[in-house]
Amino acid sequence: MSKTTTPETCPCGGPSLAACCGPFIEGSALPPTAEALMRSRYTAYSQKNEPYLLATWHPSTRPAEPIIDEKEAIRWLGLEVKSALRLRQRKVNLPDDPDSDTVEFVARFKTGGRAHRLHEVSRFLREPDPATGAPRWYYLDGSFPNKE
């Protein structure tokens, strides 16, 4: 999958916003996997959609202060999901928990005329939605691996 997007693609690199992250951000569907939630959160960051980011953040770690600075000129350039095989291999000796998952990614962005990379290993939990009781994924927290 391409690391950059064209106007036809979803900001996360998927086929199109309507066929990818759009239904999750609009609230007409729930992301079925932790990776789908992570991709939709990247898209929400690119749209400066703070309500979606807060709604998908686990209540135990959700920040009380604003997470988006409307005045900050930031342009999200692309997303690369790195996790599937490496993290599954790391978790081989851990008990399998279908209600928790980890996604490793690199997000590229530009601010102040400089390009940056955000390399994060994010943790997610699946719990019942307080309003509907339907199981849904939440972002819990993330760590930043050492540079390789």
Rank of each mutant, 00 (worst) to 15 (best):
R88I: 10
D69Q: 02
R90E: 12
D96Y: 07
L87S: 14
P95H: 05
N49V: 04
R62C: 05
G27W: 06
R41W: 12
L94K: 09
P51R: 06
G27A: 10
E35V: 10
P98H: 13
G22W: 08
V103K: 11
Y42W: 09
G27S: 11
Y45N: 03
A19M: 02
S46N: 09
L37I: 04
G22K: 09
A107F: 05
A29F: 02
K48C: 05
R90W: 06
S28M: 00
D99R: 12
S60Y: 00
L54H: 11
L30S: 10
P32C: 07
W57N: 13
T102A: 14
Q47E: 13
G78Q: 09
S100N: 06
D97F: 04
P63C: 12
W76F: 08
W76P: 04
S46G: 09
I74C: 06
E70T: 13
L37S: 00
P59Y: 02
A107W: 02
T61Y: 05
Y42A: 12
F24T: 07
T56C: 08
D99S: 12
G27V: 08
S100L: 03
D97N: 14
R62W: 01
E70V: 11
P98L: 10
E104P: 04
M38S: 04
T33M: 00
E50S: 09
A64Q: 13
C20R: 08
F24M: 05
D97P: 03
A34I: 04
V103G: 07
R39A: 05
L53C: 07
P63R: 13
R39S: 05
Q89H: 11
E80Y: 01
I74D: 00
W57F: 13
A73W: 07
W76L: 02
A34F: 03
A44Q: 05
H58K: 10
W76N: 10
S60F: 01
T56K: 13
Q89L: 15
D97Q: 10
E70D: 13
E65M: 07
N49M: 01
P66N: 08
M38A: 01
W57L: 11
S40V: 10
K71G: 11
Y52L: 14
L87Y: 09
E104Y: 13
P23A: 04
E70K: 15
Y52R: 08
A29G: 00
M38V: 02
A44G: 01
E80M: 00
